[in-house]
Design a protein around this nucleic acid. Structure first.
Length: 193
DNA sequence: GCCTGGATTATC
DNA sequence: ATAATCCAGGCA
């Protein structure tokens, strides 16, 4: 059974996030993203590496917005995109590296109701879990926002491919650093290019 | 300071 | 195909 107490007992430790973003992005599929009384099973992620990755927000080095990416793993990074949508990320790796994983889709686990089924995409993840920029730079090792290991009935079928919406990044746009649960209905649509 | 363009989404 | 909506980051 999935309930709030069970999830709370399976919070992922900082060591989980201290590894490289691609590994963390892959292993987050199937885990639970928990915020207060709401939880969603992560079914789609994208890895963003450090300044060398021209698709990453860290490509300009530490700035007022992105300095959190250069801190330790296991901390949230939430930003506003297109002036409309809030995007939820988790910093990974070691201090100074500038990596993060974007959570692009979750499936309803607890308290999401119909929210999660209305529309899809990373902007809907924050909406469903009631997250916004006030949840930026939160330590996922403590508090009411965290990721938990989650035992799901079906074995996950993992797919991977290029990240979405980063055509400006040249060759880096081709890197297969998007991961998703194959054929899961909650996964975002894949726009052309 | 000004200007450009988004790790998007829904609708026309 | 395009509007919505605002702010980050580069450059002057």
């Amino acid at each position: 059974m999935t309930d709030a107490l069970t999830l709370r007992d399976h919070r992922l430790p900082p060591s989980f996030f201290a590894r490289d973003a691609v590994t963390v992005a892959r292993e987050l599929i199937g885990c639970a993203l928990v915020h207060r009384k709401r939880a969603g099973m992560i079914v789609e992620t994208e890895a963003y590496l450090g300044p060398e990755d021209l698709a990453s927000h860290s490509r300009f080095g530490p700035t007022a917005r992105t300095s959190v990416m250069f801190g330790p793993g296991g901390v949230s990074y939430v930003y506003l995109c297109y002036g409309i949508h809030q995007m939820f990320n988790i910093v990974t790796g070691q201090p100074g590296e500038g990596q993060a994983v974007l959570i692009r889709a979750v499936a309803p686990l607890l308290g999401l109701g119909e929210n999660a089924s209305i529309g899809r995409g990373p902007g809907k993840v924050t909406q469903a879990l009631a997250l916004d920029r006030s949840h930026d730079r939160k330590d996922l090792a403590r508090g009411e926002l965290f990721v938990a290991e989650h035992v799901h009935p079906k074995p996950r079928e993992l797919a991977r491919g290029p990240r979405i919406g980063v055509a400006y990044a040249g060759a880096w746009a081709q890197k297969p650093w998007r991961f998703w649960w194959r054929e899961h209905p909650a996964v975002s649509r894949s726009p052309k290019r």
